[in-house]
Design a protein around this nucleic acid. Structure first.
Lengths: 127, 127
DNA sequence: TTGCGTTATATTTATCAAAATATAACGGTT
DNA sequence: AACCGTTATATTTTGATAAATATAACGCAA
């Protein structure tokens, strides 16, 4: 039974000062890992550097340790790299995110079964 | 094991033109049922009448039938009341919302068990 | 006919978060 | 010393979205 409606959702891990990890934050961490630079990671997501820096700062403070270590100056101007804690945060988030998406899909399937598109009309009607 | 972090999420039912049912929309439907008036329902949520009207219009159009019937003029000036389809929409949303919240709670419990607060440090360490 | 509290709709204003911009500091290289 | 690309930070500007405001129509009652 096809319903045309689907359950959707957002998932985030909340800490003392609000969001700690969410989809965008985790993608940012991944991009930092790929590029070795916060500035490049931000550009790759079409996100302002400041916004990216603020997100990273929020994550580092809430985690209690740095998820990303940064350095400035030097040959390449500086850089940013994931710590083991950062890698772990990424893995944990995607693990729960996958389960979350699976639940949404189950819910959508169940909605189609029981309801079809029939918001209107008698729910107990024979087909 | 107490973690200090908790999984949180938002759930909505998506249709052809975007959101069909979400938390705020369903509360609005409930308030309409309670007050018998769209204007009063909006005021009770500190929402502008126009915003409430737009949400209701979006729901009515996407459902394929009216979730709320309105009338204007007359003794009391007019009013709005839930249809059976509207009552059903409220019930369906809360049913899935409850399941959704239960999943988030399970996920938070599991996170506490496996991780504690230890984003930092060796995950295989003995306590 | 006038008044009332609604629904219905358009237009203007305010708010606030995101983006853009600007500046400084850093530390290696040339 | 001068240069480079980065991190770090403050300030300004923009844009999207909600709110506020205004106006009209409705239909019954006094």
């Amino acid at each position: 039974m096809k319903s045309g409606f689907q359950w959707r959702g957002r998932l985030w891990l909340e800490g003392e000062e609000g969001t700690f990890l969410g989809y965008g934050r985790v993608v940012l961490l991944e991009r930092i890992g790929e590029h070795g630079s916060l500035a490049q990671a931000a550009r790759s997501m079409e996100m302002s550097y400041k916004h990216a820096w603020d997100l990273l700062d929020s994550m580092n403070r809430q985690a209690g340790c740095k998820l990303v270590e940064t350095s400035r100056g030097g040959k390449s101007g500086g850089g940013a790299r994931l710590t083991p804690a950062g890698e772990r945060a990424i893995a944990v988030f995607w693990e729960y995110h996958a389960r979350f998406q699976a639940v949404l899909q189950e819910m959508t399937a169940k909605l189609g079964e029981t309801l079809g598109d029939a918001w209107c009309g008698d729910p107990g009607a024979e087909p």
